[in-house]
Design a protein around this nucleic acid. Structure first.
Lengths: 224, 224
DNA sequence: GAAAAATTTATAAAAATTTCCGGAAAAAAA
DNA sequence: TTTTTTTCCGGAAATTTTTATAAATTTTTC
């Protein structure tokens, strides 16, 4: 169930938007001031927050800033509500981390479709997990399953890529063989003793630079 | 790495903007006249181009028009630089395809934040409601479920089209089979293991060019 | 402290497995 | 019917794992 939080100081607006969103099957929460909004957001962790810019005391921009500062909410989508002729010249809301502007008054249909579009847009990439590691002379791109050194593109098969990704994700840290097994093969698969060595070798061949160091009796690490 | 091209006839400005953008981690290229700008743009394909309007010979507006005419750059963001009291009444730069105006002189902080906002704005999914993707030598038209390569028209059945659309919407990104299932077939439908392969094959047959790349054990991607 | 033994890792090649392609054809939809 | 979508299957290709042997490192023994 998709949770949506609406923060606005006018109860009429809250009711109106809330009613329409609920009709579409969303789980809707409301707050009629910025402070309550912040509290409620942390508590219920909605996917999307509709935030009125103009509110007494804590305005929408400030609420947004504080929301984005909380790690658990940093990926939450934020849609600002603005009066049609509000002066936005001072505010760069996209800078603050807002994802969309919706101007009041708004027709239910339009409102719903904007909300759905926003949810759809952010669905693709959880964004939570990092997609790229840039380290030493390498650019490791999880989205393309590809490693670049300067202009040279190095395609890696799955296991090799996963192994490199693991090691490079914590440069300097030593991964024991057991750790590597658990993270890359999982508990179900059982493979022989020389499997990791071979993958390490292939990686070293392809990367030419010798960033992968062996610590005999301990494990491997990515060093630079 | 985000590539930005700056085109301005004043070297001072080039240095100033370039310095500030580089400090923020952007990959910056510069050109001190319109002609060079056009050439460089085609070559490096930047995500964003900062374009001075007032330049001798080829002015910014004209450069922009020519940039937008190149299919491979039609999605590039263009920000115009204007002197604060320049007469803009004659020009409708947004008409030409510009995305923002930045007036000189500009404070570094403001400049950077405008640039970032522009990049963020265009980052979201190439458009849930976008209707056309122009990529490599292809023009993919969602309304007609049709692909054009030059004058040749290629009609695609629905599933094939959806698949191409998906892959081309994020060129370079690898889509796992699972991802493809979820996005094209949805959670309800269950299809066998070889279905995707076959559609990929049909696409490759019809597109002749080999932009669709297989990553064994991982998935497929559209590459160019 | 040096030599031998034991342990651990590296390398190359072969084997096993997984995954994919291409043709054909059945099934479903238009 | 015709078109589109899906399944099936043999063979090909790439990846992954194992095997065997060499090399490096650590430990033991004298």
């Amino acid at each position: 169930m998709v949770k949506i939080l609406i923060v606005d100081d006018e109860n009429d607006i809250l009711d109106f938007l809330s009613y329409n969103l609920k009709k579409e099957g969303f789980e809707v929460y409301t707050a009629n001031n910025g402070k309550k909004g912040l509290e409620l957001a942390s508590e219920i962790r909605p996917q999307l927050i509709v935030l009125d810019i103009m509110m007494p005391e804590l305005n929408g921009i400030e609420v947004c800033r504080q929301l984005k500062a909380k790690p658990e909410l940093s990926n939450t989508i934020i849609a600002f509500l603005t009066a049609r002729n509000e002066d936005l010249s001072q505010i760069n809301a996209l800078d603050v981390g807002g994802d969309d502007f919706i101007s009041k008054p708004v027709k239910p249909q339009v409102f719903i479709s904007r909300i759905k579009a926003l949810l759809r847009r952010n669905k693709g990439e959880p964004g939570a997990d990092q997609m790229q590691i840039i380290i030493a002379d390498l650019e490791i791109d999880r989205q393309r399953f590809q490693v670049k050194r300067g202009d040279e593109v190095i395609d890696l098969p799955k296991k090799e890529f996963e192994l490199l990704w693991l090691l490079a994700s914590k440069p300097g840290k030593v991964f024991t063989r057991e750790e590597i097994y658990n993270k890359i093969w999982g508990n179900d698969v059982i493979v022989g003793d020389r499997t990791i060595d071979v993958h390490i070798r292939k990686l070293r061949e392809k990367l030419t630079n010798d960033h992968i160091k062996t610590l005999k009796g301990i494990g491997y690490k990515f060093d630079f």
